[in-house]
């Protein structure tokens, strides 16, 4: 019998023991970020937040979505879930932000170096297919209970599409354009920032959208380690068999999902249209 689990356990334990100060630092940093964002959302009166988000949705995605956003958020407020919703929104935004900050450069690297790409591909497959619950264990070991391990697990789960779609977008830039750019004496840096990234942008934005949506799908899972927010409400509904509570939490999550999806999708679409023109 091979006891892979045992080795992984030993490895994780070794990490926790030897890198404790590092994990503490990370924890403090992420906590400040999440608290900061939550603080911002709860400092503003709810109607201001609703107005701002609805305005953004209207500008980016049109009238219909603007109205849906305003109504949806008002419904959440009316159901009495404003605070947990803002908490969840903050968790998602921070997780997705960190996932993108790490994922997009990794994606660029994988597009540039064949070796890096070859190593990353199976890792990403692994990260995406492993049941999300499994990430909760090292997350708790590293960071204890609370929001930070939730963010950690979410990042790992939500990062792969950002990496993959960045790599895809860059490798889809036509060879003749890359060649022309090189022929005019572009440095690798100029090639990346002036040509590859702008042309890959619609695809990268599709990755951003997916990363955000996958972060959202971790809401309930991360509530299992006390990350709080809407997940906690849904979880309570499940564990205490309170159907009404579960559905209310679920509806709030769906509203959030629709709003985030439409707004982030709109960025990619606008870009595509301009290019196709």
């Amino acid at each position: 019998m091979i006891r892979i689990g045992k080795y992984i356990e030993q490895f994780i334990n070794w990490l926790t023991h030897n890198f404790n100060p590092f994990f503490k630092m990370v924890k403090a940093g992420v906590e400040t970020m999440v608290d900061g964002v939550v603080g911002l959302f709860t400092f503003l009166p709810f109607y201001v937040v609703i107005a701002l988000v609805a305005l953004l949705a209207w500008r980016r995605a049109g009238w219909g979505i603007g109205v849906v956003t305003a109504l949806g958020l008002s419904l959440i407020y009316a159901m009495g879930y404003w605070a947990p919703t803002m908490e969840t929104l903050s968790l998602i935004l921070v997780s997705a932000f960190i996932a993108l900050i790490i994922g997009i450069p990794l994606g660029i690297w994988a597009a540039r170096s064949k070796t890096a790409g070859r190593i990353m591909r199976p890792l990403l497959d692994f990260m995406q297919t492993m049941p999300a619950f499994v990430y909760l264990i090292p997350a708790v070991l590293f960071f204890g209970l609370g929001k930070v391990p939730g963010v950690f697990a979410t990042i790992i789960f939500a990062m792969p599409p950002a990496v993959r779609l960045t790599t895809l977008g860059i490798s889809q830039v036509p060879d003749d354009i890359v060649e022309a750019t090189r022929s005019f004496g572009a440095t690798p840096r100029q090639l990346l920032f002036k040509v590859e990234l702008p042309l890959a942008l619609p695809t990268i934005l599709a990755g951003v959208n997916q990363t955000i949506m996958m972060s959202l799908s971790m809401v309930v899972v991360s509530a299992m380690i006390a990350a709080g927010g809407l997940g906690e409400i849904v979880l309570k509904g499940i564990t205490q068999l309170k159907i009404g509570l579960g559905f209310e939490g679920g509806i709030a999550v769906v509203i959030l999902a629709i709003i985030l999806d439409r707004i982030t999708q709109s960025f990619g679409k606008k870009k595509l249209k301009k290019n196709a023109k």
Partner: peptide, 13 residues
């Protein structure tokens, strides 16, 4: 040395 290409190689954006 500058170059002109069959498929133009212009930047679409």
């Amino acid at each position: 040395i500058a170059m002109v290409f069959q498929k133009f190689g212009l930047l679409p954006h």
